[in-house]
Design a protein around this nucleic acid. Structure first.
Lengths: 221, 221, 221, 221
DNA sequence: TATGAATGAGTCTTCATTCAT
DNA sequence: AATGAATGAAGACTCATTCAT
């Protein structure tokens, strides 16, 4: 079995049986990273457990000591990344209190910078590509990440509206989506079109996009 | 047609109504449609030729009469759709001459409407999900579709700038991308988040997004 | 196994004799033998990997742990046998120095005996039957085996001529071929005509053939 | 069905349903020739009906108008060639009456010349390669061709012995085989070792071989 | 007679997963 | 905990053969 009886259940409230067994050391993380790389490069189906193992520096069978199946590995991977992103959302939300429009500018700047981090975008791309086959995973991702991010953004926009910084007739939802759109576009396209060397300054380009957008949102004198 | 009525059916015994008419000509298209459906639903790797065949109403082996391999089917499928889209690009480009800003509004409206056509969006989604494994295909798609669309759009924006309808300091490339972004976002998300019943009026939402965007682009009095 | 035998079997219950010992080292050889049998019996194309596996006592997939493809298995098989034969050639060549005619008689005797070893002849037969489809393999076999054997034989005959044991006007090449011919004939026919029970003493028959031949070669008093 | 009821069986003793349906024209022969070429080139299993059809200039389905199956085609092919060879055997047998040794020399010469006719040798090669899978066919070939040829040859040798042209202690069977061996060897090797350009005068070589052999058989003064 | 279209039955090969140590 | 060896289940692709005209 994959789940050993906990070694010392004498008094301790038996740990609520972790979904995937963890070791003290870094193995699971290494595996997850390797899996992310392979899944992103080849797609979930085409990625081979053997390659993941090799990339993680262990044997194929060893993966199964930590994750009961390929699908479980995918789930673990997404959940792991979700945690990371979720935290960033929090930070983001806090920043908005004072000056919403400024906050949005900051977020935009930050986002523009982050685009160079390939791995950050790997997960959403992965989610998109598996959404057909594993809708529950996509659903999970949506509720845990996308909806939260959108919620934070919409709160920010609403704040902007009530402070008079953003025109009142702007539809909040639409604005939030318009904000995320360019980001996603750049994210996906950057990867899909790896070869396109023409795109010589992606960050500046994104920044421009947000400028246009915010310009459209702003209250006019 | 392949089957002429028998030249002299003396008594016209009505041909025993063939269970299935053969339509060699229509076959490839039917197969491509079935493949698109399966590829989109399950992903390229997970889609089974047998299922595609079943969906097309033929036997597995029959597919190979028209396409030499699964990959070839994928390529044919993308190329077929590329043609369709490419033409729409042309139309679109012509429309822009007179009033660029108006043209962009029209395009936005059209695009918003088209979003309900699930199949239209299936192809880009598919391209994204296979881009890791078959970069050449993604490349093909980029050069034949995306770049053309972007070119047309940028031409439109430039026209708008030179006519004074769009502010001169706007970066053309950025504007074009900002225009495509929301579309892509909605496209992907609509599918990925199939379950989201909350999105009760996507077209209106998109329309709103474009309103914001165009507002940001427009020359202010 | 996942469940260890209890660590201290007080009475030393002898391990329940594993049904099958694993012998990773012996495997390839076993597979090659099985393959030879199947290829010979049914021909390369008609032989099924599954049957080879069964004959080797393993699963179909296990073959692929040792040989990447059916063709590779064929190649390995031939190369393995080539090695064996090549060594015998060496021995044979050395024996000839002293008394060539005697050496040839010995070889003939040896060959006649070897004919009963079905497997020895299986390989050339196999090579012949695949030569149409895989000429490179036949070529490989020719250069590594046939040509060497012929070379050794021709050297022997030449030695015989220079020693006056064989008539000088004899064509060396022709003699060598005349020597090999009956052998090959018997080899192939023995198999093809498996059913022929009439052939009640093949060894003696071959011996006779060589007698005739050598008689034709010998210097007459 | 493949065998139509005979069109007018009114009184005529119904022809004993020919094994394979024949047309008045040359179709079946063309098909057989094409099949021989393909079978020889690729082996029976690997040869594709489609290729045979193409080589015969007809459609795949058309073959089935003449031969009910691939195996039947093989059988027909062999039977057709058997007929040809059988006749030559007869001729050969008659020639021997007068001067057996001379007859054998003639046969040898003839055989040496025939070796250039690739197709003549294709059939025995084919028989060898399929003998594992279809022993009955090999059996058929043996009884109808090989045994007859051997019989004729042995009769010839016996005649030679009784006339004092051939040494009495020679084993007839062995001598016959020694006669056929080189022929077969050259036949097979010529094909297997297609590339060998070194063999610059095969006919002369064979002739030499027979010289040696006959020399060994001949009665010494 | 002739054939383009179609298919069922197979075969090789792959790979996630398990076993035995 | 770790792994080399093994396998069952599955999928792409092929091809002899049949069908409908």
């Amino acid at each position: 079995m994959h789940y050993m009886a906990s070694p010392k259940p004498t008094k301790a409230r038996p740990r609520p049986a972790p979904k995937w067994r963890r070791r003290a050391d870094a193995r699971p993380e290494e595996i997850v990273e390797a899996a992310l790389a392979e899944f992103t490069a080849r797609g979930f189906e085409a990625a081979r457990m053997e390659d993941i193992a090799k990339a993680a520096g262990i044997s194929k069978a060893a993966i199964y000591l930590y994750f009961p199946s390929k699908l479980a590995l995918l789930e673990a991977l997404i959940e792991a990344k979700v945690g990371t992103l979720a935290q960033q959302m929090q930070t983001l939300a806090l920043a908005g209190h004072a000056d919403p429009l400024m906050a949005m500018r900051m977020i935009a700047t930050m986002a523009a910078h982050r685009l160079s981090d390939v791995n950050l975008l790997a997960v959403p791309r992965l989610v998109i590509s598996i959404s057909g086959r594993f809708p529950e995973i996509a659903e999970y991702y949506r509720t845990h990440i996308v909806d939260k991010a959108r919620g934070a953004l919409e709160a920010l926009i609403d704040a902007g509206k009530s402070k008079g910084a953003i025109r009142a007739e702007i539809d909040t939802k639409a604005a939030a989506r318009a904000f995320i759109g360019p980001l996603l576009f750049e994210a996906l396209w950057t990867h899909v079109l790896k070869g396109e060397t023409a795109l010589n300054d992606p960050q500046k380009l994104i920044q421009h996009q947000f400028d246009i957008l915010l310009n459209g949102l702003e209250q006019r004198a």
